[in-house]
Amino acid sequence: MSHTAHIPSHRKPRRSASKLALRAGVAGGVLGTIAVAGAAGPANAEPVTETIEMPTLGSLDTGLASAVAASAEASQQEALDQSLQTQENLALQKAAKEAKKAKAEADRKAEAERAEKARAEAEAKAKAEQERKEAEERASRDRERTQLSTTSTSDSGSSGSSDSGSSTSTGSSNETQAPSGTAAAIVAFARAQVGDAYVRGGTGPNSWDCSGLVQGAYAAAGIDLPRISYDQSSMGTSVSLSNLQPGDILYWGSRSGSYHVAIYVGGGKYVGAQNSATGVVEHSLDWDTPSGAVRIL
């Protein structure tokens, strides 16, 4: 026996009567066909055929286009959603800013109204206080007038005809003699207005100009005088400054063209509505020496 009779061969067996056929049709939508012939059996054995349907290029294009369209639509919808969200956020921010601005404006108006109310209340309180003080001053003046009138009436009854004698006395003797009768009423009224304001054209009761005060004082004694200063100084008789009596009208300027008048109250003093800075004051003759004097009584 040969030593190599049972040693198997290391070469691959050769396939006889076997073949492999593959056909595929893809262009133009043709179906691909794969034919496989069996490896075993005689060469003339009946071939076995299996048909596999492959996708066409047209169907691939349609699916891809659908997928792209769906993706584009999704992207467009997402972009639209983001745009709507952005607009909504901007609208919310704008509304918040407007609400904050409206609140600030409302707070400012409320503060202004509170300040205006406080100012009005303060003004009303100050006005009420001023009116109270003025009422107290008027009441004090009324009491003073009443007391002076009562005193002058009693003095007039006791002195009788002595008034006519005093009219010829000198100015120095009048400075120590108290006024009586009508003159006392005029002097009392004039002195009661000391401290009142000076207002051009004022005729009382709490503000005067020079001729308004003289007219008011004489009216308190029942005597009517013209309203203008030069008309007042043109009345009665002229008297020298050394022969003054209480109640005489003092004037500055010429007698028929005076620019200022006042009332002599005795003791070398006069009462007049001087100017807006001083108001109604009582001064000595040498403080502002008058030009002359007239006597109405």
Rank of each mutant, 00 (worst) to 15 (best):
Q177D: 09
G157K: 10
V265W: 02
T278H: 10
A192I: 00
V199L: 08
A45C: 04
S2D: 10
A190E: 02
K109N: 09
Y259Q: 06
V30I: 06
G195W: 01
N89M: 02
S180Q: 05
I7D: 06
A110H: 09
A69K: 07
D155G: 08
Y259C: 01
G157Q: 13
A24F: 14
A115W: 07
T33R: 15
E50L: 09
G28L: 15
D286V: 07
A192H: 01
Q215P: 05
G41V: 06
K97C: 04
Y230S: 15
R138H: 07
T176M: 11
N275W: 06
Q77W: 05
Y251C: 04
D231I: 00
G253V: 07
A67C: 10
A184R: 03
A35D: 11
S234I: 03
L80T: 12
A219L: 13
P42H: 11
S75K: 13
V194K: 05
E116Y: 09
R143D: 09
A110Q: 09
S83K: 14
L148F: 14
Y259V: 01
G195S: 02
S18F: 15
A220M: 07
V265F: 04
S242E: 04
D286R: 11
E121D: 10
V187G: 06
T4F: 12
W287C: 01
A79N: 13
A79K: 11
H260P: 02
P42E: 13
P42W: 06
Q274N: 15
V214L: 04
G202P: 05
K133H: 11
L31V: 14
A102H: 02
A126M: 06
R14F: 10
L20F: 15
A197H: 00
A115F: 01
T289V: 07
A106Y: 07
Q177H: 05
T146F: 08
A95Q: 07
G204K: 15
G171L: 05
A70L: 11
R295D: 03
A45P: 01
S258A: 14
F189Y: 12
Q76Y: 04
S162H: 14
A65C: 08
K269A: 06
E131F: 05
A188D: 01
R108G: 03
K117I: 03
D209C: 05
S238L: 04
Y264T: 02
A102N: 05
R114K: 04
E73T: 00
N243D: 14
L20E: 11
